[in-house]
Design a protein around this nucleic acid. Sequence first.
RNA 1: GCCGCGGUGGCGGAACUGGCAUACGCGCAUGGCUUAGGACCAUGUUCCGAAAGGAUUGAGAGUUCGAAUCUCUCCCGCGGCACCA
Length: 975
Amino acid sequence: MTKYDHKAIEKKWQDKWEKDEVYKASDTSKKDKKYVLIEFPYPSGEGLHMGHLRPYTAGDVYSRFYRMQEHEVLYPIGWDAFGLPAENFALKKGVHPKISTVKNIENAKKQLQSWGMSFDWSREINTTDPEYYKWTQWIFLQFFKAGLAYEATGLINWCPKDKTGLANEEVIDGCCERCGTKVEKKEMRQWYLKITAYAEKLLAGLKDLTEWPEAVKLQQENWIGRSEGAEIEFPIANPRVKRYVILHGRASKPKDNSYPWLKKELEDRGFEVEIPEMPNPGEPNDLEQTDFVEKNCKLDESTVVVSHSFGGIVALRLLERGHKVHGVVLVSTPTTGKFLDKKARPTVSEAVRRGFDYKKIRQNSDYFKILVDSSDTVVPMEDGKVLGKNLDSYPQTVQALKPHFQGKEEPAILETLLPYMKIFTTRPDTIFGATYMVIAPEHPLVQSRMSISENFSDIAKYLEEVKKKDEITRTAVNREKTGVELKGVKAINPATKEEIPVWVADYALMGYGTGAIMAVPAHDERDFEFAKKYNLPIREVVKGGELPFVGNGKLVDSGEYNGMTSEEAIPKMAKEFGVPKVQYKLRDWVFSRQRYWGEPIPIIHCENCGVVAVPEKDLPVTLPEVERYEPTGTGESPLAAIKEWVNVKCPECEGPAKRETNTMPQWAGSSWYWLRYTDPQNGKELASKKLLKRWTPVDVYFGGMEHTTLHLLYSRFWNLFLYDQKVVTAQEPYMKRVPHGIVLAADGEKMSKSRGNVVNPDEIVEKFGADVLRMYEMFLGPHADTVSWNDKGIMGVKRFLDKTWNLGQVLVEHQVEESSQEVLQVLNKTIKKVTSDIENYRFNTAISALMILLNAFERQKTNISKLSWEDFLKLLAPLAPHITEELWHGLGHEGSIHKEAWPKYDEKFAQDTKVIFVVQISGRVRATLEMDAGSSQEDVKQKALADENVKKYLTDKEIIKEIFVQDKLINFVVK
RNA sequence: GCCGCGGUGGCGGAACUGGCAUACGCGCAUGGCUUAGGACCAUGUUCCGAAAGGAUUGAGAGUUCGAAUCUCUCCCGCGGCACCA
């Protein structure tokens, strides 16, 4: 008997399969399609490991099974090859990432083939191929055009080791997801993808994904973090202000623009309002108008002067002349005499030319507020900056409803005049219990209110302290809360009309909601803790339990709402005091990286035109060759150093411009790759509609839990967007998600080089062969469970395949025409079980069923027909493709076993003819009976009562009840 | 703290909608074959007990003729989120 030579046989068939293109997916066949996907690997220098093998084998078994079930199966593979390791390797060894990537891919491909994976290699893709990332960039441009890719400066997560910014999703426990380094906060200009615009769709889509595991859906749901509540404005009181004087601009009158609206809003709140009608508005003279205001208006320390455009010059002149006021609000004030519309306004320019005595002006008002419109068409933003510098104030940039603040209503102005804190709460029913306010240290209001608070230095000190803390210590749960009161600043509770104190405390987070909260210490644990520490009033407004009671109950001390339940009151009070609002925890996706080895972001910055998209015809923007890959660490990508690449002509005005030098994150290429597999060579579109329709959505996606709120969320986002853009045909990308457990080392620890417990799959293949490795990997435990590798355990599978081989040698020669009844019965049951097990990803039990079948075969060696043996080989083929192919050919077949039809079972044999009956007496097993299947209750009862042991237990007892389960059991309940 | 998943022999794990708990495999034991073997074959292997018999699915209660499976309370382990208002 020949021994099974796994090395020679496995190699032989791998070569043959490749040559014959056995696993190529046809775009045109009439069979039902099945798109099976695995997460394509990153080709690292270390090669592929056990973590890859598990899902890939599962996908492979599943694919092979469906090919035999008459499906056209697409099981593709590619390389997610951008990313830091290749770049870090380049840094260390000086090898260009392109070169090391090619080498690593070659090696990984060899590994995959040695594992007998049935991928369709003709569709192999590589995210670093310009023909591929051309489309990654193209998709980015679609986001940009839709306003969903934007640039902003903000505090982002920064990994000091990888020297790059990170997305929220890439920060695990305050550490970098890649390297584990503590993440810092850094203020940077970054590209963002507006994933928050899709929060609702991402959430709603989950409901349709009925074949996704609940755990995966829940995790995404929690990550998106939807909560319903209300946004409520708390006015900030300033008792020193009694009156407003509004100075209109050039070519304007008190009834123009938003003045009437403003006047009414202010008067409604009990303020005195004056809007003098200025002389000669068409050709305004600042000195003449200043004289006019001096004569006609009352200006004192309870007055706030509000000015629009030219009126600002008049306002400044008034202070220059020594008028003391409480505050000055300057809206779109011209200070340079230059205008965006290039029109000449000689009287304005002349007024500006006279200059201002800013020192004097500064002394005559407690504060200056400078409002700048980002969409202004007249006064350049530059003018606001000049003003800010001279008045020691930060210009506040907002977008006016109509350019140059010319709308009939301009809420931004009102907001400046009547500062208020906007808060978000899920419990508007507790508003009567809001006894103080908390704002985050980064809140803009802190900056603007600090100057008028009485304890400026305390606050400044606190802000310094907060700045020093890193994110982890700041958000640690059990940390004692700290804060400082903004003394002299009071908010007004819109429900009770009481003035309540305002605190700056870092338990309010700028990143969520509005960065400010109403604190209800009686009904919020955090507020309770804070109130206790700082002796703030605690007022119970919902009855229900011990304070802080946070649940639902009956309202008390809440005016007309007394007696209502929280549930009833929440929607009503949300509407009365604010507006209902939905909040998400999801943040926009920080999409730029300050590294070399990634897709260049296809954007050009022009001095005149601003941010301009690279025209689609110029794609791809290829990565240039560089000498040095070092990240600069300053927040600039290494690309910035390549002048010839960076400096370009603006595609719009042809003026001098610069390329965006940040690259895309690792997740970009994988956010759409499954689409490309359907049409990998297409040069005109990312994939044709026809082929997308043929193959997508993916039917089954095998992958890890660790990608749930990363790749899986990102790629759903991209797909939903591309669906809205009518680029793809399926709304959701993956119909079914099958997660797998981690493979731990024998010691129950994670496999790692430093622990020295790594099991290298290639060594196992060398020693036992791919079939043994694949089967053992599947046999370790349920596919979704974490399992531990066991060196000894693998021998069980090896013995099974050895026995299969040996029996195969015997069965080539002596066979019977018809298998015995026992063989047929076990075989048919096994077909049934293996079929449903593979359909349901229960590979471990499928294997044990095959073991049982083989054991039966060994007992019945001489009673096995050729057909029965062939059925066994077919059942085993998806799991052990090589040995079964060899045995199949040994039986004289020409074609591949993997193209054979899956065995069908005969229900007649799959069912037992004899069944074992359990005889219970009051629920305890007292005997077992062998009966014909389908025996009647009466027959079973007769036989049971005849049993000696049963008789023994029935003596002196009365049967009061009889329970009969067909083919299973009979139970006598006795007294 | 919140959310989710799980706890079955010495070990990995079976048990479909409540119906013989411990399939299959590892390990172990005994015997055989063998110069030898992480080889092969046979038998046994949840625990207590010589046996009859009894106990047993993290602990405790409940529903039921009958519970690993359903309900409640608690304990332990794993994963996710984490001052999210």
